[in-house]
Structures are given as structure tokens and as C-alpha cells.
């Protein structure tokens, strides 16, 4: 197998990157494009810290072959902050102390965004389900669930999108 050129859109920018055979989307995002909010936790799809959106769907970038992202629109945590401002979803994480060591946080925010994009008014159970692929070892999850509840409330008050 040979190196290959793929084109994709990342956080609104058209990118052309040369990938090695079997490179993952995580490799492209972290190593080639230096989008290091995409964390590398377990590399096996078990922790969710590498979560990104591919064409609006939540994906584990460590289990996604880069080739499969050809032509796709990819959003990482960095893509939420086009104007360098904290979006309401992130603000809710801040206000609810929903991060301690912070390693899971980027993936959690992306999972929460994916949830709120398809279900702007989720129940608590739906939030728990929406975050079920993401592990946190510090917070005990309760502050994260509260942050997503607050973000959903804020979004319904303002009629904005999650980010």
C-alpha cells in the first residue's frame, strides 16, 4: 500500500493531507493538522476522548480510517470557537465545574454537541445515554450531566444552536 492524498474539510477549512496506509483520522487531526484538542486516550474506542463530528455525526477518530473521511466535513473542539469565544456549551462546562484534569473534556463537549444538535431538549436519561461512550475519571459525571442540562436550557432560552 502506498501513501495517499486525501481531501477533507476540517473546521470549515479545506485540507489536503498525505496519509500513510491505515492512518486514522485521529493521526491526521492530531499529528498532521495539530488539532490537539482531539485527545488520544486508549486508542481502542473505549474512552471517547478522541470524539469528533464527521458530517455532523459523533465519531471516534481513533477507530475511523482517515481514508473514510475523504470528502467529509470534520469538526473538532477547535471548530466550535471560530471567533475564539467560548460557546454556551463550553460556558456551561465552566460554570458547573465539569472538568478536573480535563483529558476527557474535549470529547465530552463534542458528544454533548452531537446530542444537542439532534435533540435540543434532552431528558436526563437521554443526556446520560448521549455521554455513555465517554469516560471521566475525575468528576463523577454529575457536573457534566448538569452542564449539558444547563446548556440545553440556555439554548432553548436564546433559540441559538449549541455552537
Amino acid at each position: 500500500m502506498e501513501d495517499k492524498l486525501i481531501r477533507l474539510t476540517v473546521n470549515g477549512r479545506d485540507e489536503a493531507v498525505i496519509i500513510q496506509p491505515l492512518a486514522t483520522l485521529q493521526d491526521v487531526l492530531r499529528d498532521t493538522l495539530e488539532l490537539t484538542a482531539v485527545k488520544s486516550g486508549c486508542g481502542q474506542g473505549g474512552c471517547g476522548s478522541c470524539s469528533v463530528l464527521v458530517d455532523g455525526e459523533l465519531r471516534l477518530s481513533c477507530l475511523t480510517l482517515a481514508e473514510r473521511a475523504e470528502g467529509a466535513e470534520v469538526t473538532t473542539l477547535e471548530g466550535l470557537n471560530a471567533t475564539n469565544a467560548i460557546v454556551p456549551l463550553q460556558q456551561a462546562f465552566v460554570e458547573n465545574y465539569a472538568a478536573q484534569c480535563g483529558y476527557c473534556t474535549a470529547g465530552m463537549v463534542m458528544a454533548a454537541k452531537a446530542l444537542l444538535d439532534r435533540n435540543p431538549a434532552p431528558s436526563r436519561d437521554e443526556i446520560v445515554e448521549g455521554l455513555s461512550g465517554n469516560l471521566c475519571r475525575c468528576t463523577g459525571f454529575a457536573p457534566i450531566v448538569r452542564a449539558v442540562q444547563q446548556a440545553a436550557q440556555a439554548l432553548s432560552d436564546t433559540g441559538e444552536e449549541a455552537s
Binding site: 486508549c42 473505549g46 446520560v128 445515554e129 469516560l135 463523577g140
Partner: peptide, 17 residues
């Protein structure tokens, strides 16, 4: 050797504290 076998509670196992 992975999180499929090293079990830990998730948000759904967390009671109100």
C-alpha cells in the same frame, strides 16, 4: 487490558450525591 474489560461506572450508575 482495555476499558471493555476493566469495568467502571458511567453516568447512569451515579446516584444523586
Amino acid at each position: 487490558v482495555d476499558f471493555q474489560n476493566y469495568l467502571q461506572p458511567g453516568a447512569s450508575e451515579m446516584p444523586e450525591v
